[in-house]
Design a protein around this nucleic acid. Structure first.
Lengths: 331, 331
DNA sequence: TTGAAAGCGCTACCAC
DNA sequence: GTGGTAGCGCTTTCAA
């Protein structure tokens, strides 16, 4: 391995000059700098990031904690994050963790071991606040994505899920449906609760009664959408429309409806939530509630980096996006 | 920040003892160890990974370089990688890069800056060998995923794409099709070339002529599948079956066929390649060539970690998987 | 079983 | 403009 000393020796200067030259600091004669850069390149020198981090106390990486990196839902978020990160030269360190306990461990490995300078936490559920408050205490720059945490010190980027659920249900209501089912997400997650609440509110405003038999709890996966829809198809009077907690759930519902010989949207209208890439490719293409995932990922990382660079200028940002309906053909 | 010195002082021993105690090394009296562990916990001490890495020369991190983290194709690969990584305590550092030049830069940032101990490179194309050979030179433990690099020093994990293309085409042939189209992947990528070659070979063996009008070049995305299929639908005599380079391309083809009022598989049979999660949810569900992506990701990381741990015991492994057909309803 | 000291490669400070 | 030196937090000899 070639170190800064080797380069210094070869050029005939001290390591400090090499360091300054390579980091474009002031106070190096131009001709010296040129020579250093040339020799460093010739020798194939590459600064050791670990050693540098130890003294600068910066790793130039941001940790990203999410439940499951491989969910299609996250793809646009990740792209947005990468956009912001690459713009500022930060590296993203992803980590999956499903349970709260695991998340604390990941945080230890990332934050407390000082491998990252800041963190983005995607999709924590309402019970999780201990490890989040610990981050505040330790003054670690971080933002919560997909959650509105009511603490003025905490930065949050999220979409107005209640409004989204309201929007979706209202859309169905306006089409003349009066018997609208909802396949919800996992209770315990704020997003699931909020979308359900939006559904209820729309119903209430329309003067329709809330029928709990029309609400089935799922867990955001297509298998649940499929099973829930099957159940919904058996009950009478049958619903004429269904609002699912997310698109993946809608995929399962679509399949169940098609299998039973009914057609979408004629017999049953379906509206999803998320607007996944794939949702325009279902049969029929899925009408859904769009959330600006790319934008959200981008902003989350941007906020962390700005916290890192300008100190704590952005403190307690609550960035709330308004979702909108994408009309396709399933409703 | 609490350091090892703080803990040492509090316990009344030297930092070296604390280090040994916390790393479960021999030569620490049991009672001392217990006290150290307790006090460290009380104080909220967490060892600084950067400082440790600097002296041990290990980061316990494996870099993963791929074209696009968010492609649905990669999800299972990533899960497999994470399985192996978590089993051995390694952290995965993902990095996206589309072009060769960019990849060299990423490698610098990861490998030469010593932020990772080893690397997995996913889906390099045939022109890329300079930076790969440089890794060999520098003796960096790495494996190539999705590529068979004919160099005995290089570890490769890949699927037999030629055989896969052959399998798919043969399946169609056995169903009685004689006019089979192929929507290929981007030429320049070995996988695209190999799948095309398999297609040609099956045709040749069946005594059928190769008609280049039946082969349209795509780029693995559904938009290309859609456009290519539209073009295929216009030409006469029309094909009765199509083999697409991947599932995503098949999704587009499926849509084009449905839009034109024809039905699958009655009018045109469609077979894909990859077996994505979503492929069982298309209408009709997609018949496709399955490749063990989870397994491949798992093995790739396992090989790197074993290289790291047992020195270079596994040298020049060529792990080739045989794909198989998943019959659903599109062909 | 313990501790002192060296040193990983780098940056930052201060003196020249 | 430049160089010497200290030191980031840790592990690792080696001597006690």
């Amino acid at each position: 391995m070639i170190t800064i000393k080797d380069v210094a020796k070869r050029v005939g200067v001290s390591p400090s000059v090499v360091s300054r030259a390579l980091n474009n600091r002031y106070g190096v004669k131009e001709s010296t700098r040129e020579k250093i850069v040339r020799v460093a390149k010739e020798m194939g020198y590459y600064p050791n990031a670990v050693a540098r981090s130890l003294v600068t106390r910066r790793t130039a990486t941001i940790g990203v904690m999410m439940a499951d990196l491989s969910e299609p839902y996250y793809t646009q978020i990740i792209k947005g994050m990468e956009f912001s990160a690459s713009k500022t030269g930060y590296t993203l360190l992803f980590s999956n963790s499903y349970e709260s306990l695991e998340k604390s461990k990941v945080l230890e490995k990332m934050v407390y071991a000082e491998r990252v300078d800041g963190v983005v936490i995607v999709g924590s559920n309402i019970e999780e606040q201990e490890y989040i408050l610990k981050l505040v205490e330790r003054k670690v720059p971080f933002v919560l994505l997909e959650r509105d945490f009511a603490d003025p010190r905490i930065n949050c980027v999220y979409v107005d899920n209640l409004y989204g659920g309201y929007l979706a249900t209202n859309y169905l209501l306006n089409k003349g449906h009066t018997r609208i089912a909802h396949i919800s997400g996992k209770i315990g997650f704020q997003v699931a609760l909020d979308r359900l609440e939006g559904y209820k509110r729309a119903l209430r405003e329309a003067g329709l009664p809330f029928d709990e038999k029309l609400v089935i709890t799922g867990n955001f996966v297509w298998q649940d959408g499929y099973a829930a829809m099957k159940q919904l198809l058996r009950s009478r009077p049958r619903c004429t429309a269904v609002f699912t907690a997310n698109d993946t759930t809608a995929f399962g519902a679509l399949q169940a409806i098609t299998e039973s010989g009914l057609s979408v949207p004629e017999d049953i209208a379906v509206i999803g939530f998320d607007d996944l890439e794939f949702s325009s490719l279902t049969n029929p293409p899925l009408t859904t509630v769009h959330q600006p995932r790319y934008e959200m990922g981008k902003e989350a990382v941007r906020i962390v980096t700005s916290l890192l660079q300008q100190g704590a200028s952005e403190k307690g940002v609550k960035l709330c996006y308004r979702p909108k309906i994408i009309v396709r053909r399933s409703a």
